[in-house]
């Protein structure tokens, strides 16, 4: 199984690649929402967890989340929000629309790794 990171920042995608590698997962990347939907259309069967940035050009993370959770083919995939938006209102909105985890930047690699494992239904590192 693979992880999918959707983030407009290459730096952030590289960090998530690093954390995924530590956990033994290949990480697929999308730099915006439309690209993420394209990856899902092709590879949804292989994706164990999706990590979504909030602020991206074009569709924001919440809009992408809504599309994923409205799709019968994709709604079973756990979605984590990984974002600088730490406002309570944002967290509530994301959870209400089906996000399973909410990670705010900055985070330590261990913190992200543990949140990924939790999303996969596994214990901590």
């Amino acid at each position: 199984m693979k992880l999918l990171t959707v983030d407009d920042s290459k730096t952030m995608r590289q960090i998530i690649q690093g954390v995924g590698a530590t956990l033994g997962y290949e990480v697929l990347e999308a730099e915006h929402g439309l690209k993420a939907l394209e990856v899902l259309r092709k590879s949804a069967d292989e994706i164990a967890v999706i990590m979504l940035d909030w602020n991206m050009p074009g569709m924001n993370g919440l809009e992408v989340l809504k599309i994923i959770k409205a799709s019968d083919d994709w709604k079973h995939i756990p979605v984590m929000m990984v974002t600088t938006e730490s406002e309570k209102g944002h967290i509530i909105q994301a959870v209400r629309h089906g996000a399973i985890q909410y990670v705010t930047k900055p985070f330590s690699p261990e913190e992200l790794a543990n949140k990924i494992l939790e999303s996969l239904g596994m214990g901590e590192l």
């Binding site: 920042s9 730096t11 952030m12 600088t84 705010t104 930047k105 900055p106």
Partner: peptide
């Protein structure tokens, strides 16, 4: 890309 993400994170951290 890195300096953008860096300033985004420090300003986001300040806000929260």
């Amino acid at each position: 890309d890195g300096v953008s993400e860096l300033v985004n994170m420090i300003a986001g951290g300040m806000k929260s």
